[in-house]
Nucleic acid binder design. Structure first.
Lengths: 280, 280
DNA sequence: GTTCCGCATGAATCGATAG
DNA sequence: ACTATCGATTCATGCGGAA
């Protein structure tokens, strides 16, 4: 058991092992997107859907131990289609996590505006993922004001940045919720968020593709932590969670088994500046 | 066992009892929004979340029997928060329905664009519900073209393929359907939808607490049936499903235990016209 | 400097083909 | 019969070069 947390670093190894050295009740927010069943097989050896719960539970046991009683665990995950059916391993995982001692507080929906294309006789494109919120206690830290958006200024800023074609495109889009449909927000000062998030994946980014867009962890970090709080991502990948955590002036800990990802994340993190609060 | 289905009528009673008189494999689509746990307690005697699965399974057993092998069962449901947690009865219901013989084909998300306003210390407004798709067989009827939506950048796509003069000429003739080369790009301005539906709730219906907007059943009726197919709603309430079913030229069967709702639904249905296909 | 347009790129899924 | 691999399908996004 180590005395101090390895703050602001990316650790190389299996989170199940490495977390055993962490002290109890020391993390404010755990947010992660673990490898989905049968995905990323080159990295994680391809956990099969049927084995997924057994693979995950020892890890989440450590998450439960290191999380503060006021902390939150956000799990981004989505089940795949197997033999024409949705597999049930995510449902079983939720039930198992509750038996492990977690409270299943909420399920946020991440609406992926640019879902993977394709056509099949029996289903449409899969355009959403689960962001499951778990807690240790019924009372936890939540800073709702931090994610309220000042819509007036925001609308003007967005409008200015849009090309004409983008404006046409967006007004024609049926599913313009949180996105660029500015007209929804005219005359409003603040928007109360809901439990549905509308974000596009960053698929054709110049950077290495991440599991989720940075706006996703950003939103949860703002919502569940304040400055200098500690945010852990036990499957940090190319470092998206750590990067936005640092940018927001919180302290990050990332864990990753793939060495190449570790180096990549550390490389980017040295270039990232941390948020400095303005002095009056 | 009755010989013929009670087509285009609203039956008064408990669907579990009434369906026992229905023949096997006779319904093309079952779509329903059952009373949620602990809701509408005056109507259904207050099903508690812990008893919900046991309450539901005998009914779904009849659904399974009366549904055609090519048919679909759409279940609109959302778990409530109990003691600060999301209750797990919907997850358990999915697992139980699979054991009963259903295939859990898909989970659509209904994003409620204007969700009920409110603010709580530990959660945001709940602005989505599950629309669970179950089937008897892996092959089922699905008419995807019936629900295609305008493409995201339809304006861009059209402009790309046409010269300016062609644009003017063709757009002026679109209504008559005789434009030149129209077929080249007309097909491109529509895309298949995803498994996320963006629909506003209709606040107008004050009596029926579990009512969904007519656009929701409309979408599924178009997607899973053709004209003259039989659509059943075993918890039809004030009749939304039956009404849109009739309007779309399909045949409806509604079941409702509350007599007042039955009368209300029948009253509206007499005024509703059925879709008439145009003859050449 | 703008705006416009081509193009690669995805946490996908199914069905056919091969071992 | 059962598993592994592969091609076909499809569309929102953002980058970069062109106009």
């Amino acid at each position: 058991m180590i005395q101090n947390l390895p703050l602001n670093s990316i650790l190389h190894g299996d989170c199940e092992d490495l977390l055993k050295d962490f002290p109890d009740n020391s993390i404010d927010l755990i947010i992660t997107s673990p490898p989905y069943a049968d995905r990323r097989s080159h990295t994680y050896g391809g956990v099969s859907p049927d084995e997924y719960v057994d693979w995950f539970l020892p890890k989440s046991e450590q998450f439960l131990r290191v999380l503060k009683p006021t902390g939150t665990f956000i799990l981004n995950i989505k089940e795949k289609a197997v033999n024409g059916e949705r597999h049930t391993y995510v449902l079983e995982l939720i039930l198992s996590l509750r038996k492990q001692g977690w409270l299943w507080t909420e399920e946020f929906i991440w609406h992926k505006k640019n879902s993977y294309p394709g056509k099949w006789p029996n289903r449409f494109r899969d355009s959403w993922e689960r962001c499951l919120q778990f807690n240790k206690e019924r009372k936890f830290n939540m800073y709702q004001e931090a994610v309220m958006v000042p819509m007036g200024d925001w609308a003007k800023a967005r409008l200015k940045n849009l090309s004409e074609t983008d404006q046409i495109r967006d007004t024609s889009r049926v599913e313009s919720g949180f996105g660029k449909n500015v007209s929804n927000w005219v005359g409003r000062d603040k928007a109360y968020p809901t439990n549905v998030l509308h974000l596009a994946t960053e698929c054709s980014n110049k950077n290495h593709s991440a599991a989720f867009p940075s706006a996703l962890p950003e939103w949860f970090v703002k919502l569940f932590t304040v400055e200098d709080d500690v945010v852990l991502d036990p499957f940090v990948g190319s470092g998206t969670t750590a990067i936005v955590t640092k940018e927001l002036g919180r302290q990050y800990i990332g864990i990753e088994v793939e060495e190449e990802y570790c180096k990549l994340a550390e490389q980017v993190l040295t270039k990232v500046g941390s948020f400095q609060p303005e002095l009056p």
